[in-house]
Every structure is written in structure tokens, then in C-alpha cells.
Nucleic acid binder design. Structure first.
Lengths: 249, 249
DNA sequence: CGTCTGGTTGATCTAGATCAACAGGAGTGG
DNA sequence: CCACTCCTGTTGATCTAGATCAACCAGACG
């Protein structure tokens, strides 16, 4: 990638219509929720922000961690690629999520790549600033502790699910998770969901290949549980879906 | 289980030859490593300790969390059982590990059962005491943050491995982990390992059934990588083992 | 109008699950 | 001391979910 294509939308800190943590609509959901006005100003004035196109990487597995990323809008996946090229989506990070805090705090190299799954608006706060904040605000550390505990809990659950549920069941599971976040109930069309991922990524998230996902989808349609049209999913029988999640398979 | 068999070895806190956190050989490896003498006395005088036989539970998935457990000696597994009876060993906790901190800090019900995999000597510190310590010692919170980050990292790795390595490869992997902790190099017998788990539990750890483990073991013997005699394993060709771990399969 | 990319389908192969039998202790009780 | 059952582990036979390889199709894009 040449320097010139690097970032048509890149902006540096300071005053810009994109900037201003104080007015960031997501701030209240983040670890930064109880910073003082002064501290916010410190962040606002030093951060960099940027829009990423789908597929672009915020950082690459193995890179050194220079600070912390904060997703203002969009969707970013943690992707791990192992020695034989096998790629797994370890986790999805939604708007309002602080990214890379783990490597930041433990001072290690990034263990996953962070990839924009949708067009995403992301801020970057450099190490020195975060360090300052951590030393000033006692509660910030605690926020990160809670966050880490939550991530641990989720990863543990994902592990158990992966161990003993079928692909079909896991697919239903993630669809349901997506529905809770992005879904709509429309009187005409019923439960509708715009799936935020391409099939390949859906596959990587579940831990399989695109062919298998494709087949699983067809199955769900044949059993008239969920109907698919491109990236749009219609839940035909929500009760049956819930049933199948809690029960075996 | 009748009340009378419950705990022949149970001891209550106070002065006993088992007690005394100040002299606990494991303390330096734990989250409690930099408590003051006074704080240690507080813990020592209020804790309960007990020996658990293999198979016994410290607590049960779904139970309320009343405090924190600390493994002085032995081996304790976090076991998760899902609706259809499928049991998975999510993690192993070695001597010197603080157990149940997650549920303690988030005030939730236990999400896994804690089961002694070997005879284990375990201390219990009740909620009120831990809360006191947390409010006094600033570094204790940070220790738990680091611990949580480490657990997260490990679980994430386990997840990725489970997603794209074969059973055989995963078995080799855990054997190697065990070797690093329990293994010996003997001039006569080479690399020897006393496996700390029964086959069923080895299976639950890897996420399969005992039959499959049995076959995988036989395979490793046929390929003369590892030799087995009951719970003892002899690594015949350590280089080949490492090879297979880093390379594909 | 070719080429590319993302997705679907078909055919085939295999790792691993599942079911069933069995073998060696280890305890228990007569 | 033997007969019994219980428990753990091993083996065999079979079945299937899912991986893998290959072709193909439709829309996007230069």
C-alpha cells in the first residue's frame, strides 16, 4: 500500500467536526465514562481519528502496541491467523468499545489483527496520554478490570459453545446475538436482521469455512426457521429458534 | 453425601499447623503477594482451610459466591456442564492460584464448578475480608486486573487452538504443558511425565470423549512419539513433538 | 467484454462421535 | 478366600458432521 492511498479520510487531532470526546455520543458506554472535563480535553486535543473502510486493518497481529483505539462507530473484528493461514474471528467489537487495552496494559505485541468489518470511525489515543489518565483517575483502572472480566466471561462462553454445539446451532446463536443489536421488528416483514458480516467472516466467526455456512443457511431455510436474502435475514419462527438454542443440538 | 463423610480433614481458621498465610509457601506467587504483615494476619485469622479428595467440589456451578478460594497445594479444574450433560474442563488451576475471583468481583453466581482433580489443600477467605483488603491495598485490585488479563489471554489461545487443531495435536499440546510443570528429565528414562489427570478428564479438557483420547494415545505410541504406561508418559522424541506442535495438523 | 470477488452447489473423504462389548483392578460383603 | 459389582480404560464397528476440492454463477468493475 502506497503512502498516498493510505488515508484519504485521516484527520489529525485538534478542532474538527469529527473530534471532541466531550460530545462523543458513545462516551458514556465506554471505559472513559467518568473522566473530568479537563481530562476529556486532554484526550480530545491529542487523539487522532480516522475512518476505516471494510477490510482495512487498525493494526496487525505482531505489531507493537502504541496506544488505545476507541470505536466511535462501525464494527471491528479481532482476527487471529495461525501458522498455516487459518483465520478465526475471535471477537467482534461494536461502537463504543475500547480496543487493544489488553496489549496496552500488558505491554505486549498485538496478538490479533483488528479489522474493520464495516466502515468504521475510530479514534486513537497514544500511550503517554492513557498512562497519564490511568495515574490520575483511580476509577479508570477499575473500569478496565470490569471490562477484562466481561471479555473473559464471553470468551469462556464462546469456548464452551464451540466445544459442544453443532455449526447450525452456533450459527443460530450468532444470528440471535446480531438480532438483539441490529434487528428490527417490522409489522409487515416480521423480525428482520441486516447481517453485519460477509459470509466468509460469518464462517471465520463460527470457526468453519464458507461452504459449510452456506449449507447451514440453506438448511435453516428448508426448516423454515430463518429466511435469507443476501445479507438480510428474516426470522420466520422466533420461538423455534429460541427452542433450538436452549435445547440440545 | 452424608454430613458425617463430609470432611474428615476439615479445619477451621485460627492457629493450626496448616494455617498461617505468612508462612504459606505459595503466597509469593499469588495476588496476595504484597500484603502487609498486618493484613496477612487478618486473612490468617479468618480463613477456613480444608483438604479435598479428588473429585470433590469446592463449589458448584450456579452457587452463590461467598468469598475467594486459594489453592495451597494440588490441582483444581473449572468444569462447565451444559444443559445436555456435556462436561468441559474450561481451565486447570495449579497450586498458588486464587480461584473464583471473577464471580467474586462481578457478584455473580459461579459459572463453573470447581473440582479437585488431585488431593488438594485449599483455603477460603470470606467476602467481608476480601472487600476490606481491596479497599485498603490499592495494588490488590491491580493484581486482579493482571490476573484477569492473563486468564483472558489463555482462554483466547485455547479457543483458537480448539478451532483449528486436531485432537491429536491438542493432546500433544496439553502433554507438553504438563511436562513443563510436572515433567522430569531422567538420564535413564528420558523425559518422563506423571499425567495429573484421569483419561476422562484429559478428554474433557480437550473437548472430546475418552474413546477418542484412548485412540489418540495409541496413535502417538505407534508413531513412537510418546510412550504411555498408565498415567506415566515417556517422550521418546521430544523434537518431533515440538515440530508437530508448531507445524500444521 | 474479460476479469475478479463473493457466494452457492455438488461430490467425495475423513476425523471424530457414538454405541456396544470387554478387560482389569479395587472394593465390598458373604 | 471367593464371588460380586463398580469403575476406568481400551478396543471394535459403525455412522455422520463437517472439511476439502472443484466447478460454477452473478454482480461489480475496470
Amino acid at each position: 500500500m502506497k503512502e498516498s492511498d493510505l488515508s484519504p479520510m485521516q484527520r489529525s487531532g485538534g478542532a474538527s467536526e469529527l473530534s471532541g470526546c466531550a460530545v462523543c455520543p458513545r462516551r458514556k458506554e465506554t471505559e472513559w465514562c467518568d473522566l473530568t472535563a479537563q481530562e476529556l480535553e486532554l484526550v480530545s486535543s491529542s487523539k487522532r481519528e480516522r475512518l476505516y473502510k471494510p477490510g482495512e486493518l487498525l493494526y496487525r497481529q505482531g505489531d507493537e502496541c502504541l496506544g488505545i483505539y476507541c470505536i466511535r462507530d462501525g464494527l471491528v473484528g479481532d482476527r487471529r491467523i495461525d501458522t498455516d493461514g487459518n483465520s478465526v474471528l475471535v471477537r467482534l467489537n461494536y461502537a463504543g468499545t475500547t480496543l487493544g487495552y489488553q496489549e496496552f496494559l500488558t505491554r505486549r505485541l498485538y496478538r490479533n489483527s483488528a479489522e474493520a468489518m464495516q466502515a468504521s470511525h475510530v479514534c486513537f489515543i497514544k500511550r503517554s496520554v492513557v498512562t497519564q489518565l490511568l495515574s490520575r483517575s483511580a476509577s479508570l483502572g477499575e473500569r478496565f478490570l470490569r471490562r477484562s472480566l466481561r471479555d473473559l466471561r464471553k470468551t469462556e462462553d464462546a469456548y464452551v459453545v464451540a466445544m459442544n454445539r453443532s455449526i447450525r446451532s452456533r450459527l443460530l446463536h450468532v444470528l440471535l446475538v446480531f438480532y438483539e443489536r441490529y434487528g428490527r421488528h417490522d409489522d409487515r416483514r416480521g423480525h428482520v436482521l441486516e447481517i453485519p458480516l460477509a459470509r466468509v467472516d460469518l464462517a471465520a466467526l463460527i470457526g468453519t469455512g464458507p461452504e459449510t455456512i452456506s449449507r447451514a443457511i440453506r438448511q435453516l431455510q428448508q426448516d423454515s426457521l430463518v429466511q435469507f436474502e443476501g445479507r438480510t435475514a428474516y426470522f420466520r419462527n422466533m420461538d423455534a429458534v429460541y427452542d433450538e438454542i436452549v435445547t440440545a443440538a
